[in-house]
Design a protein around this nucleic acid. Structure first.
Length: 199
DNA sequence: TAGGCCATCTGGTCCT
DNA sequence: AGGACCAGATGGCCTA
């Protein structure tokens, strides 16, 4: 996995604009409180993915939940077939063989378990989307992967903690970071794996 | 084409 | 017993 390190020295203009925007839209204390205490309340616009995650993905996820409920336990249920259009899933006869008959209790149970697992994963993914809404990213960044989202969230929390402990104005603190270069790698490594690089 | 990321299925384990 | 959670396996999609 390729790791890249964000350096506040790079492209300071763009970074400054970004953080300025953050400061404007998110008064520091309220945002920190929101992020740490109530992840469901904020309607963050920090990330270019925010609208994607909060307004589009979540409703879709809800619909998906409903769909799963409605579909279970039908024959065409296996959305897994969508994702993995194997010969089996494309073959009509074999597909019908996947139909869950009452005399197949194991298959019925297994199928129900699959649906529950899919729901569970959807809820996890919804949580990731929500987390993406609260993690600041740069405009040129592509959508954060799950692992990048977690790592960036950790780094972001560390940065917010530092700002809190410094007692400085958040914007001034970030300005100072950019002037001197952010060298404290133990506290805020903006580390992503998605081949993220400055344009 | 290789590697990264992801969704899905599956069986095992733990909990209620 | 049934559901939640977890990790491994598998295959598809996308990008460098």
């Amino acid at each position: 996995m390729e790791d890249l390190l964000f350096d506040f020295d790079q492209d300071g203009t763009a970074d400054y604009a970004f953080w300025g925007q953050m400061d404007q839209n998110f008064p520091f204390q309220s945002q920190l409180d929101t992020f740490l205490l109530d992840c469901t309340a904020a309607t963050g616009q920090l990330s270019p993915w925010s609208s994607f995650g909060c307004q589009s993905v979540f409703p879709d996820a809800q619909l998906t939940f409903t769909d799963l409920d409605l579909q279970s336990p039908g024959p065409a249920v296996c959305p897994g077939g969508e994702n993995s259009p194997t010969e089996e899933s494309l073959d009509v006869t074999k597909l019908s063989a996947r139909t869950l008959a009452p005399h197949q209790p194991y298959k019925v149970q297994r199928h129900a378990a699959n649906i529950r697992e899919r729901k569970r994963m959807l809820s996890i993914n919804s949580a990731f989307e929500e987390l993406r809404c609260h993690v600041p990213t740069f405009p040129y960044e592509k959508r954060l992967s799950k692992i990048d989202t977690l790592r960036l969230a950790i780094a972001y929390i560390a940065l917010l903690r530092e700002i809190l402990m410094s007692g400085c104005d958040p914007k001034s603190y970030v300005d100072e970071c950019m002037k001197s270069g952010y060298k404290n790698q133990t506290n805020a490594i903006w580390n992503t794996s998605g081949g993220l690089s400055a344009p």
